[in-house]
Design a protein around this nucleic acid. Structure first.
Length: 866
DNA sequence: GGCCGGTCCG
DNA sequence: TTGGACGGACCGGCCC
């Protein structure tokens, strides 16, 4: 991604000057504006990572605008000398950063910026313009955003076309018409007497431009106003012209000359030293040392020698920490490290060591807790988890190992894959090399933590990290360790039943096909269906014929073999994945211990592995019977399931504030029926089941980021019909329509979208020139805040429950989370008392403008829980 | 060992 | 702008 930053040199200098108290260095030079400037540059480089950079200055007194209007910028107060003396050092500062600087006789900085931003737009750049002058907002476009610095320079308003529309109801290009009519005191642009912002906006709303307003003077209401407009026609036109940024300045450089890399350490260092910018010098030194990781090798033999604030790490190569024991331990206080094989560590001593530390930082709390359990240590007093922090900072970055996370903070250590090898090159490292690896690893964990707080705070995710994800990791750890009891005999029974049926169906298929083949091979099946039996080809995949369910269903009437194939598919899936697969996951304790991945789903949802307990069949009874095998821990207990009703649509109602939707939820009406009433414009009693079904599909589509194609596929209707449904829907729910539009704009402006708890998801493809990629990005922008906020809510409920008195009072044990549902194991004689309590916690986990509703059920196995 | 098509869930 | 609903995991087949 090419990213250009354009700074309006003079206006930012003014803002920096007035934003900070008058500082000066030993030699008596005032430095506040220079310092403000330097801080701004630091922040821009860190936050925006520009690839191209330009600071434009106003050249001299005379510009082409003065020729047009002598008094242009007349009556301005003289620049205070305290600022004047800082202009030259500011230019030196910019040079020291290696940033291109430019000024041109006869033109203002605005015009240079306008010219370069136009070129940048044409060349597919993302552009940020920094200015203290609202005039520049006329340059806003889909890929250009104006950062307008208000008081000082840290307080920034971001002007995008949408924002301008929101505050003025104008397109960016109309800003000049606004100025033309109302004038601009600061630039001494006259405008039309008696016309201020309000009147100008009203006029522009009706006519669009200065020219059009003057064309239709007869339509203007108000005698005085009409008189003024008539008398000052020329002023209005000239004012507009003065305010219009000249976007074709003959600059003598190209985009390539603006290339920027942040590598002028030496020059910056010397200038900061001269100007006595100690805090900036310190920052530089800090990042210097972090770049060249020189880890302490002061190894101590007694972990007790470490100070109270530590990073801690238990190591085992295997993924499944519930099965595999820790093999090594490493800890550091930032200066000294302790590394040992577990055989040489006394678990009791380790536990009291952990208990006596004030602050403990780790990479992956849940894994550390799981490993500690092998030593019979139930410890959860961890304070930081850099893995969780790293995921929040950018969920699209794969969570791999400590090295990967550390690399994002310029700390370089050997990766796990490199150290341990892969596949046939797998190694079992031991000895000093391995100790060194563990030493570096725990040091990296420690050093990352110090930077992580700052990064998360900048992105406003510190609370999300500390109050949600970290406490949640501890809840999940308990759930994983606890496991869910499974009655293997019930699975065994099913297995033989399904096996017989599969064999029967297999025979039938072979007979109908006229030969034996591997039904599980789409390739062989495709050959049989589309070549041997000559059935019509409905859909192709990139490797051949598609034999997916929807294709087979379309072929139902064409051949008897199809229905057997469909049955075979269903049963084969049940048998392999669930009936047989699950049996293999039952451990010695007759339980299944899934692991929840907290750092994978891009929206912030959890996922579940080994096995996945979030996709146990439910929709078809045949599969649902699998749930009979999941049982409470004993006869005195039951399984209790509580699920949020329509949580995603409720979140959508909350975010958009749509009144129809909000009132439907407030009065607890069936949302799909309500949607059908709106979309088909009928009374409640006239909603047919088909209408409701269609409305339901549209609601799903809305949550997923609507597309006519997707809906048409889902409902088996034409694209055109689907489009009509969608258009009707959006007209019935205008706030939803507005949200869909504005969230995409947000994504374009910010590069990310976020949930109610500020969880981010970056959407780089939103700018893609590839239609598919861009469309997908747009749907992602629409869906992620909804799905992600729903994930925030249930996670919050889980943490709040664990921290509640109820968790102490009742013997309820949380077993599973399935996106909008929680499963508990609880004594039968407590369940009725527990339900209202847990329901209350879940329904009030977060306060929305619509109520949250929780349904529940309990029984002697998971199947009975309906 | 990793990808693909297919199917299960919210 | 010619394919796609949003998030996931796991299976068997198949290719390397």
């Amino acid at each position: 991604m090419k990213k250009l930053i354009l700074i309006d040199g003079n206006s930012v200098a003014f803002r920096a000057f007035y934003g900070l108290p008058l500082l000066s260095n030993q030699s008596g030079l005032h430095t506040n504006a220079i310092f403000g400037y330097a801080r701004l540059l630091e922040k821009l480089i860190a936050d925006e990572a520009p690839t191209h950079f330009l600071v434009a200055f106003d050249a001299g007194k005379s510009t082409f605008r003065h020729k047009q209007y002598e008094e242009y910028k007349g009556g301005r107060q003289k620049m205070p000398p305290e600022l004047g003396e800082q202009l030259a050092p500011i230019r030196r500062l910019i040079d020291a950063y290696g940033i291109k600087r430019y000024e041109l006789d006869e033109y203002e900085a605005d015009d240079i910026i306008g010219t370069m931003s136009r070129k940048a737009d044409e060349e597919g750049f993302e552009t940020i313009i920094i200015t203290g002058d609202r005039d520049l907002t006329q340059l806003a476009s889909a890929n250009t955003v104006i950062y307008y610095t208000k008081k000082g320079i840290s307080d920034i308003d971001k002007y995008t076309p949408e924002y301008i529309e929101e505050i003025y109801g104008l397109d960016p290009e109309q800003i000049v018409d606004l100025k033309g009519l109302m004038g601009d005191k600061s630039d001494n642009i006259p405008g039309v007497p008696g016309v201020g912002e309000k009147t100008a906006l009203k006029l522009l709303k009706n006519h669009g431009s200065v020219e059009e307003v003057l064309e239709h003077l007869d339509e203007v209401k108000g005698k005085k106003l009409k008189e003024n407009l008539t008398a000052h026609k020329e002023d209005a036109l000239m004012s507009k012209s003065l305010a219009t940024i000249h976007r074709a300045v003959p600059v003598d450089f190209g985009m390539d000359d603006l290339k920027f890399t942040d590598d002028n350490e030496q020059e910056k260092y010397e200038l900061f030293k001269e100007l006595e910018f100690d805090s900036l010098l310190k920052n530089m030194e800090a990042s210097e040392t972090e770049d060249k990781v020189e880890f302490s090798d002061e190894r101590v033999t007694d972990m007790e020698a470490l100070r109270e604030d530590i990073s801690f790490h238990l190591e085992v190569r295997a993924d499944n920490y519930l099965v595999h024991k820790p093999e090594y331990v490493a800890a550091t206080d930032g200066e000294r490290t302790f590394v040992s094989h577990m055989d040489d560590v006394d678990p009791g001593q380790l536990e009291s060591f952990l208990e006596s530390r004030s602050t403990i930082n780790v990479y992956d709390i849940k894994r550390q807790m799981g490993l500690l359990r092998h030593l019979d240590i139930h410890f959860q007093d961890f304070d930081h988890d850099i893995m969780l922090g790293s995921f929040l900072l950018d969920p699209s970055k794969k969570i791999i190992d400590v090295a990967e996370t550390a690399a994002q903070f310029n700390i370089n250590i050997d990766s796990d894959d490199y150290h341990y090898g892969k596949g046939r090159n797998a190694k079992e490292p031991t000895g000093e090399a391995h100790f060194k690896f563990l030493n570096d690893k725990v040091m990296a964990v420690h050093n990352v933590r110090n930077k992580m707080d700052t990064s998360l705070a900048e992105d406003e995710m510190l609370d999300l990290w500390k109050d949600l994800e970290i406490p949640l990791a501890k809840v999940l750890s308990e759930m994983e360790y606890r496991g869910i009891r499974v009655d293997a005999s019930r699975l065994k029974e099913m297995e033989s039943g399904i096996k017989e049926r599969l064999e029967e169906i297999e025979e039938r298929i072979y007979t109908l096909a006229g030969e034996e083949f591997n039904i599980n091979s789409p390739k062989q099946l495709g050959h049989i269906l589309f070549e041997k039996l000559e059935l019509p080809v409905i859909k192709k995949t990139k490797t051949g014929y598609s034999t997916a369910v929807d294709v087979l269903e379309e072929l139902q009437d064409k051949h008897e073999i199809i229905k057997y194939l469909l049955d075979y598919r269903t049963l084969a899936k049940l048998q392999s994945t669930y009936v047989i697969g699950l049996q293999g996951e039952i451990k010695e304790d007759s339980k299944i211990h899934t692991r929840f991945n907290q750092t994978l789903a891009q929206t912030g949802r959890l996922s579940s592995v080994e096995p996945n307990l979030q996709n146990i069949p439910i929709r078809i009874d045949e599969g649902r019977r699998i749930r009979k095998a999941f049982v409470p821990k004993d006869d005195a207990h039951v399984l209790l399931a509580l699920d949020y009703s329509q949580i995603e649509l409720r979140v959508l109602a909350h975010i958009t504030g749509d009144e129809t939707m909000t009132s439907a939820f407030t009065s607890d009406t069936d949302i799909h029926t309500k949607t059908a009433m709106e979309v088909f414009n009928v009374e409640r009693e006239d909603v047919t089941s088909e209408m409701r079904r269609n409305a339901k599909a549209v609601n799903f589509g809305i949550v997923y980021g609507i597309s006519d194609y997707g809906l048409s596929q889902n409902l088996g209707i034409t694209r055109k019909e689907a489009k009509t449904f969608i258009d009707n829907y959006l007209d019935s729910f205008p706030e939803v329509k507005g949200f869909m539009k504005s969230i995409v704009q947000d994504a374009k402006r910010d590069g990310y979208v976020k949930t109610l708890l500020n969880r981010r998801r970056y959407i780089p493809d939103i700018h893609s020139r590839n239609f598919n990629a861009r469309s997908f990005a747009e749907r992602t922008a629409m869906n992620s805040p909804i799905q992600g906020s729903a994930a925030d809510i249930i996670k919050l409920a889980m943490v709040k429950y664990e921290q509640s008195e109820a968790a102490q009072k009742f013997n309820a044990e949380l077993l599973l989370q399935i996106h909008d549902e929680l499963i508990f194991d609880i004594p039968r004689d407590e369940v009725e008392d527990f339900i209202p309590v847990i329901k209350e916690i879940m329904e009030n986990a977060m306060e929305l403008r619509v109520p949250l509703k929780v349904d529940y059920g309990y029984g002697n196995d998971w199947y009975e829980v309906k």
